[in-house]
Design a protein around this nucleic acid. Sequence first.
DNA 1: TCACTTATCTAACGATCGGTAGGAAATTGG
DNA 2: CCAATTTCCTACCGATCGTTAGATAAGTGA
Lengths: 202, 202
Amino acid sequence: MAMGRPREFDVDTALDLALQVFWRKGYEGASIADLTETMGITKPSLYSAFGNKEELFRKALDRYVDGPGGYFQVALAKPTIRAVVEHLLYESADAVTGPDHPPGCLAVQGALTCGDAAESIKQELVSRRAKSEQDLRQRFERAIAEGELPEGSDAADLAAYLSAILQGMAVQAAGGTTREQVRKIAEMALRTWPPPPSLATV
Amino acid sequence: MAMGRPREFDVDTALDLALQVFWRKGYEGASIADLTETMGITKPSLYSAFGNKEELFRKALDRYVDGPGGYFQVALAKPTIRAVVEHLLYESADAVTGPDHPPGCLAVQGALTCGDAAESIKQELVSRRAKSEQDLRQRFERAIAEGELPEGSDAADLAAYLSAILQGMAVQAAGGTTREQVRKIAEMALRTWPPPPSLATV
DNA sequence: TCACTTATCTAACGATCGGTAGGAAATTGG
DNA sequence: CCAATTTCCTACCGATCGTTAGATAAGTGA
């Protein structure tokens, strides 16, 4: 097995480096030249190993979700809904302001807007965010069924509300807001948690 | 006065059309070809009237702030802090989901990330968002001085928190979330308003 | 009518975009 | 040692990027 000339770089390491570039500059803002320079490989090596720019981004995104973004799934597995929300807010505050990687969240700033050519990437990120919100919603539904949330709480609304706060924290971080300040946002959100159900819907 | 050949297009109308393009595609995603096509003018006309892409964006941004984004300053002028926050949340929910323009907020999605060439545009947007948050903070300071908010409330923290929610709503809208759903986020935020001050800081 | 000014257009500029031929280099299996 | 396979690199592809030169058209003031 393993015929042919052996690859001189580690694919996963290169992918992590590509992730850093996409994270900092977004899908469109990251040029192939940026990527190859940071990854330490040539263009043909990049295309041979990863297909093209779009595939490279998708692979980097998968790696992001399983790595720096992994706290999300960890949070969902917490036993109580209070722990889920606490974990989500605090870990997110730290994640979007981590000192060892670009600020913000790749799923938010990877392609919030873009030109026509990147439309499918934008849609991919929209879907991923929607999927996360959906997972959160299901967790809230379980919590409601288990009586952990006030009578009349709407799982979908709670998920949208919390998602918006997390995304807002990501925007703040992307703009350079410090970890301490973002943590305060998380604390304030937690201080008012859970929002009581609307009187009109009862 | 008015020497030379008269301009065949209206500058403000063209600027509004350019704004639509930047709003939908972001600064980098909007190409000069996109802009001229939508504006109905040729490239030399664009450069002659607006300088270059960066200046065009800045002028479109000014127009955005005074037009579709004008609700922000209107909200700050409301007499009570409750009215300020209500106006901010509800008008923002409607603004980022307006049917007559692209979804989301230009100040958020214009250049949340970008390549090196657009770095100064990104910074401009960061500054504008910071300025809005600062204005909001000052309004909260006044409200605290006037006894409208709980003892121990921190104006800067409240401003960061509310800004994050507004930006989160903009991200949701940019991803295609409906007006009704974004309004629910605004309602939930309002339901828990104002967040009580931290016990630790008292 | 004639200079002057400004806007219009076509056509092009160099630079960069994402993406690839095509051949040399390095490994494996025979 | 030789064929097969795979990766490596240099150089290049056509398309598009933002931007502009240069000629022409349409107005004003004298």
